[in-house]
């Protein structure tokens, strides 16, 4: 079972990197009123949650809470990916 965790700065937190990227996009002629930068973690999970999407989601959430996201400034989303099809 595979999982994906996406971590981003919280909505109220100024994303200085995103702001710089939005400006760069603008200089290329694109219209991007806001860009938020995030990080994606793809995790191959262990056998204990094989065929257990609910259990996998709990493990991913625990990983995000304990290490991958800093709750002071970041929020996260988890997705459980079915290893066979690659779809959530």
């Amino acid at each position: 079972m595979k999982g994906r965790i996406t971590v981003q700065l919280k909505a109220g937190v100024l994303d200085v990197e995103g702001t710089a990227i939005a400006r760069a996009l603008g200089s290329l002629g694109f219209t991007a009123s806001e860009v938020r930068v995030g990080r994606v973690f793809e995790v191959e999970l262990g056998p204990e949650v094989a065929n257990d999407p609910a259990g996998a989601a709990l493990v991913l959430t625990d990983m995000a809470r304990k290490l991958l996201a800093n709750p002071v400034m970041e929020r996260f989303e988890v997705e459980v990916l079915d290893g066979a099809s690659g779809a959530a």
Binding site: L9, V13, L14, V16, E17, A20, N70, V72, M73
Partner: peptide, 15 residues
């Protein structure tokens, strides 16, 4: 990060 002090340190505004 260890929770011994509150808050967090983010990237400098000037990048």
């Amino acid at each position: 990060e260890a929770g011994l002090l509150p808050g967090a340190l983010r990237r400098n505004v000037c990048l």
